[in-house]
Design a protein around this nucleic acid. Structure first.
Lengths: 211, 211
DNA sequence: TCGTGTGAATCACTTCACAGCT
DNA sequence: AGCTGTGAAGTGATTCACACGA
């Protein structure tokens, strides 16, 4: 099972379909066509069909897709609903914010540990968790069985922190620091680069003024 | 000028080069080759040369690129360093967090207004700004000359809030709400979808366990 | 008849490879 | 000799278009 060679673009859309389908299911709807699903998830029908076809042929010609079944199949591919504990490193403005963000728990990544290097921050209690020092990372990871690292440090610290996370056995990392970071191939690192997003918006804003 | 048909992928990398170049410039380095720039910005030399060639031919064969000049040229394309005031809508956990995040100001998008609909939050002072009601948006936009809207509301409110922003004249929107939103073509809307990022990490985490 | 599933065509981005400038 | 700039080739994703099953 699961030798589906899912293109990353399709994967990211499947998560959006999933959310839309759960909402539909909650309101009692049973089936949906690719056109309708495209409509509510900002995609298009050909893409929806191709994306869903990576999972197998779960639609019915002339009818559409069974919503429950689709939710289930996408769920299996996305790794089910098992919780994956996460450790957050870097308790500055953004880190503090993220530590309170419910979205992580809701998505199945509850934050179970906080880490910083600043002696003024280490030892503080935030949101019911005591901030640990970076030295204690290995221990913290094994105690909490964490599998995800969330990095919200300044750019300058990101590489060191991420090296530590990898050394402690973490293989999935979400990096908010605006830094280029090297990791070995078996580590999956994703960046959320707010500065880049803003600059892209700035570019288009400027274009509007030119034409 | 500026009918460069910059592919979005290149645009997003240019922002990364820009940051790397500013750092190099600060440490007194004058020129750089495409290979070196690729190295420090996690790209590759062919891509760097192609990306930079969209700006014009600013390199010197046999030598490389003049760092100051490149910073300048990229700066022009990205819309210079003019400040673009931003309004943040949705003062929940994430919104409060974002309101304190220095990165917006640093990137040239200082937050100049806060908006929420919850009567318990409206009127509160956060970070030196008084939270306004959604009804006061038009006025707030014209008073502050805001050009960017940052949306950190729950998914259910996102469409309504974004409609209001557009009606108030905002054409650049950064949406943190995990919702699909319709906007007219002249509005540039970018999503930061943490839930999707997490689920993609979950997918790869699961794959590791299967093989 | 309707809507899926999927090869084929198209489009967008990346990488190659080399001519040409310094 | 070294490194840019860029057509051409390659790769990957999107869209088209239609055969087929319900």
């Amino acid at each position: 099972m699961s030798n589906l060679n899912l293109p990353e673009a399709a994967l990211s859309r499947l998560t959006v379909y999933q959310r839309a389908l759960v909402e539909l299911s909650d309101s009692g709807i049973k089936t949906i066509s690719s056109r309708e699903l495209a409509e509510i998830s900002g995609s298009n029908e050909a893409k929806v069909r191709k994306d869903l076809s990576y999972l197998g042929s779960y639609g019915t010609r002339g009818v559409g897709y069974d919503i429950e079944r689709l939710i289930n199949e996408i769920g299996v591919v996305l790794g089910g609903s098992q919780a994956r504990p996460a450790i957050l490193v870097g308790i500055g403005n953004l880190g503090r914010a993220l530590s309170q963000y419910e979205g992580f728990k809701v998505s199945g990544f509850p934050i179970v540990g906080l880490v910083d290097t600043d002696p003024d921050v280490v030892g503080k209690n935030i949101n019911g968790l005591k901030v640990k020092n970076l030295d204690g990372l290995d221990e913290l990871v094994s105690e909490t069985a964490a599998v995800l690292g969330i990095v919200a440090t300044p750019a300058t610290a990101a590489q060191e922190v991420i090296d530590c996370l990898v050394k402690a056995g973490i293989k999935s990392i979400l990096n908010f620091a605006p830094a280029v970071v090297d990791v070995s191939a078996e580590v999956e690192l994703r960046r959320v680069d707010l500065a880049t997003e803003l600059q892209i918006l700035g570019y288009y804003d400027q274009l509007r003024k030119i034409d």
